[in-house]
Design a protein around this nucleic acid. Structure first.
Lengths: 155, 155
DNA sequence: CAAATCTAGCTAGATTGTCTAGCTAACTTA
DNA sequence: TAAGTTAGCTAGACAATCTAGCTAGATTTG
């Protein structure tokens, strides 16, 4: 039996989360505009900036677009000087995508106000509350990941 | 061996949030695929489903696209039987967009697993922790909104 | 070791969705 | 009533992704 008093809180969390998901798009667009790039291109840079070495196909998988589209995307980023195509040392077919240091800095700078604001928010919380929030966010991303991965029709 | 829990809480929250923002896109795409629509069309339905009466221009503002694009978007939704264009009772220029009950049900059903999972998660929290989470999410959406609204160059 | 198969990446052309430009009709104001 | 504003639409341009199909390098197999 759910009590009447914790219903509003659950509802508030649900609504806030949905609003946050909706806002995510706007945030990506805003970030892209700051960098003068398209939204997908920025996502690509963010993936590449994690440091995990990637080829064109890997990037395509990460972005959930076709490899052909990723090729064109990398063309754009390369033309803008944001990434470089390095040959793979062992596999002649492969390409290793390397983010330029300038692009890395640009992305970090554009994200800074956001990261700083969130950090301020987190630092303002008592440690045990921050812990609660971190755990909740971790669980939530897990749920979202599951939902996003789930096939449209359950087999 | 460092585990995830050893990291500073602030960093974990920041990372989780960024992951959440990245996942939001995938979630929208997954939802769109379930409904057989484009991502923006689904967002439009979600906006319209809130019950706040809207015209084409209002929808355009909500989605941050041009009114011309919204017109075409509404054409698509109308052709698919998801919305209806009703004349505005007082303003002859205006159109009131009405979501069909079928579409409303479809969207709710497609979102159900997500909403249910989040609700389970929230209901599993002690009330005071839920309160902390709700407050944090509210503050976060505020930060994101500010970031998304901020002009590329401070003038 | 040579043939068949697979994989990474690319090119070309079709498709889709948003954009800009510009229009009409209706509302508002001086 | 004339001028300006707003809601919505149409037409055509543009940008990003998609499908189809190709080449070259890697892997497997008889």
């Amino acid at each position: 039996m759910t009590s009447v008093e914790d219903r509003p809180v659950a509802l508030r969390v649900n609504l806030a989360l949905r609003e946050l998901l909706a806002l995510a798009h706007d945030v990506q667009v805003a970030l892209a505009r700051r960098l003068g790039l398209g939204a997908t291109d920025v996502q690509a840079l963010q993936h590449l900036a994690t440091g995990v070495p990637m080829g064109t196909v890997d990037l395509a998988h990460a972005l959930k677009i076709r490899s052909a589209s990723a090729t064109v995307l990398v063309d754009r980023l390369e033309a803008a000087g944001h990434v470089r195509r390095d040959p793979h040392p062992r596999d002649g077919r492969r390409v290793t995508l390397v983010v330029s240091e300038a692009a890395r800095v640009e992305v970090r700078a554009a994200l800074a106000p956001l990261v700083d604001a969130i950090t301020r928010l987190t630092d303002g919380l008592p440690p045990e509350q921050a812990e609660v929030v971190a755990r909740f966010l971790g669980d939530t991303t897990e749920i979202l990941r599951t939902y996003a991965a789930e096939p449209p029709e359950a087999g």
